[in-house]
Design a protein around this nucleic acid. Structure first.
Length: 694
DNA sequence: TTTGTTACCCTTTTT
DNA sequence: GGGTAACAAA
């Protein structure tokens, strides 16, 4: 490795990146934990590359891969990162290295927490067979307790299950007392403080009785382990190097974990960009980042990455202008080097339908110019904003993949099927049992509760249930269900048992739902994923921690080399980039969302959201500004069209950084646009045929 | 006790 | 335009 000049894996890094990669790593001996390091990286400055190189640098210098902990925001980021590390290492060392067991500790906070809790369960007084509640499970449990506590009626407008869970979760993740959380973020629920406290206590007890952990319990459990002298010592000894991505979006509980792992900051590397902090609603706090330098006894290094390699200069000019108006801009600017004549486009369109048509036209035009669909993305504030666009894409048979929004796990039929698996895995899970029992006709809450109580009395042996007289309407199916539960209880014939469940469930689904085909297709997809999982337990955990994309046609097409247009919420677009980016509904009420204009902090977060969206674009950026919009279900206004105002973030100074695209027919209802259509359609038809041939 | 019906509410972002 | 609570009917 000697010789002059930097080592091979450092050669294509710039000076700042190289400094961040090598900081504190003694190159003479085996790598040892150095002082804490914060890499303050602007958008597109090679944050991921740098972090990956730093991990590789550690490995190349002899760090034990088993003792490196890499915490990312999503599983995709973790996989991306390990892939890159592998690549860098093998190139530097001139050979493939065995990563079979290396870097096993790369993942999201929640996934790593789940593994550790499972591993140490016996020492924690919990069963290692715990099941993980995803959000909708947690909501259902909360709802049940809410009803049992008599909080549902009273027509006093007690908060709904989703809000209850949100409050509970925010309190846990922010580490703030309930009263303060209510006052600051949920003031309309403040009158119910006492009831909520009781409810949350019941929720915690119910989870414990049933062997369930929700997302917050995973983090809290990990934090508590670290604060136990003995267990904390074991973990600190195990993880000598801790690297955390997206640090600006960690919350106080996560910071507690990080600081519990590295109390004096040794061996800690954090990467983040405070201008991209967009998870305030999940209690994320930029202060973790801003106070990084003062959090440890030893001084922390803060190294910047400032050269943007992603976007062309006009896009960066726009992004800089946008943030220059922020109350919290810190005067930072993105500096790029990719020249271009094309400025971002400010595109007024008549309405949502016009917007959809325009985007489709442009996507196809780009494609004709040689840009693949998957190099283009349509971003939006909230998943349902893509509604008409999705219709238009389907109509024109343009394949797309949507990220964010409704999850497959939240579809009723999927929850039904999973209830069987979860109940089999953990018979104490009353939520699962409750759900699956009520699938039978004639079985409601009362009988289901009776069955679960009986089952508990029997030590969870389902065969005893045969003696319980079912309600008349369920008589036919009852023996089958008892048999199935018996089989699931005994068996570990994974994934074979899935077939038995579906033999029982599919006909029921036919009774329960209209349009079963789509739903059964979802279950087929799920079964396919199950095949790939080594065990039922693993399958359920993976599903809860990394839920698959939405239900329906666009979901789960496994093929990698399909060329799909990307549709994504801005949140889900974090960390990604595309050659062309379209941002939908850059109008007030959408960006910023009406839901998030309560406080100046919230509005600033919305601005950063737009910033994240525009900094995803490499070459082409188009901002769609409908002139009128359909609003529904505001009782004061009623359904109908309202005149829309451009987003408040598009001030004159910001708009001066883009070019307005004047289009024929703009301002008229729609005619000129549809005039343009036939030409495109003819062109398209041939192309689309060609696409599907071969 | 379960199931069906009606009237009324609120509508985001995610591990 | 979907979830939810209250009421009615089997």
């Amino acid at each position: 490795m000697g010789g002059s000049g930097p080592e091979v894996h450092l050669r294509n890094l710039n000076a700042e990146q190289r400094a961040a990669v090598t900081f504190g790593i003694d190159e003479s001996g085996a790598a040892r934990p150095g002082p804490p390091l914060l890499i303050a990286a602007g958008a597109g400055t090679g944050k991921t590359t740098t972090l990956a190189h730093r991990v590789a640098h550690l490995l190349i210098h002899g760090a034990d891969p088993q003792r490196i902990l890499l915490l990312t925001f999503t599983r995709r980021a973790a996989e991306d990162m390990t892939g890159r590390v592998r690549q860098i290492c093998s190139r530097a060392l001139g050979r493939e290295i065995d990563f079979g067991t290396a870097l096993v500790w790369a993942g999201t906070f929640h996934a790593i927490a789940a593994r550790l809790l499972r591993e140490f369960a016996p020492k924690l007084g919990i069963s290692s067979g715990f099941t993980i509640l995803d959000r909708s499970d947690a909501q259902d449990l909360m709802d049940l307790l809410r009803e049992e506590a008599g909080l549902a009626q009273h027509r006093k407008r007690f908060p709904k299950k989703a809000v209850c869970l949100e409050i509970c979760s925010f309190a846990v993740n922010s580490g703030r007392p309930l009263a303060e959380v209510l006052a600051r973020r949920f003031s309309w629920c403040a009158p119910f403080e006492a009831e909520l406290r009781r409810l949350f206590r019941a929720y915690a007890e119910a989870k414990q009785r049933q062997g369930l952990l929700d997302y917050d319990d995973l983090l809290m459990g990990w934090a508590q382990m670290l604060e136990c002298e003995r267990l904390g010592g074991i973990l600190r000894e195990r993880f000598r190097f801790v690297l955390v991505d997206e640090y600006q979006d960690t919350n106080p509980l996560q910071a507690r974990i990080v600081e519990g792992l590295c109390p004096d900051g040794s061996g800690l590397t954090a990467v983040g960009d405070e201008l991209q902090a967009i998870y305030g609603f999940r209690a994320a706090s930029v202060r973790n980042m801003l106070e990084f330098g003062r959090r440890f006894e030893q001084p922390a290094a803060i190294l910047p990455l400032s050269t943007n390699y992603r976007s062309v200069v006009p896009v960066l000019d726009f992004a800089n202008a946008l943030m220059a108006e922020s109350r919290e801009s810190f005067g930072r600017r993105l500096v790029g080097r990719r020249r271009s004549e094309e400025r971002p486009w400010h595109v007024p369109v008549a309405d949502e339908a016009d917007q959809a048509r325009y985007v489709v036209e442009q996507v196809l035009a780009n494609r004709e110019a040689g840009m693949r669909l998957r190099d283009q993305a349509v971003l939006m504030r909230s998943a349902h904003h893509a509604g008409l666009l999705e219709l238009e894409l389907a109509r024109r048979r343009i394949p797309y993949r949507k990220y964010g929004g409704l999850r497959l796990l939240e579809a009723a039929h999927v929850k039904d099927l999973l209830a069987f698996l979860r109940f089999a895995e953990n018979p104490r899970d009353r939520m699962a049992g409750f759900r699956l029992l009520q699938l039978l006709p004639g079985v409601g809450p009362a009988f289901a509760r009776k069955v679960l109580d009986r089952l508990e009395g029997l030590g969870f042996d389902p065969s005893g249930l045969a003696l319980l007289p079912p309600p008349p309407a369920a008589r036919g199916l009852w023996p089958d269900l008892v048999t199935l539960l018996g089989r699931l209880r005994g068996s570990s014939d994974w994934p074979g048992e899935l077939a038995a469940i579906r033999a029982f469930y599919d006909p029921l689904a036919g009774e329960l739902y209209d349009e079963v085909e789509g739903r059964l297709a979802d279950l087929d997809q799920l079964a396919l994923a199950a095949e790939a999982s080594p065990s039922r337990r693993r399958f359920l955990a993976d599903l809860a921690l990394d839920p698959p994309l939405g239900s329906g046609l666009e979901a789960g097409r496994p093929v990698q080399d399909e060329d799909d247009l990307v549709l994504s919420t801005i949140h889900s677009a974090k960390g990604r980039e595309w050659k062309a980016v379209f941002v939908l509904f850059v109008i007030d009420g959408w960006i910023p969302s009406d839901m998030a204009t309560g406080s100046p902090e919230e509005i600033e977060e919305e601005r950063r959201l737009l910033y994240v969206a525009v900094t995803r674009a490499r070459d082409q950026l188009q901002l769609l500004v409908p002139l009128r919009c359909h609003v529904h279900a505001d009782p004061r206004i009623g359904d109908g069209y309202v005149r829309a105002a451009p987003s408040r973030f598009l001030t004159a100074a910001v708009r001066a950084r883009c070019t307005s695209r004047r289009r024929a027919g703009q301002g008229d209802a729609e005619p000129a646009v549809s005039d343009a259509e036939p030409e495109m359609l003819l062109d398209l038809a041939a192309r689309l045929r060609a696409m599907w041939e071969r």
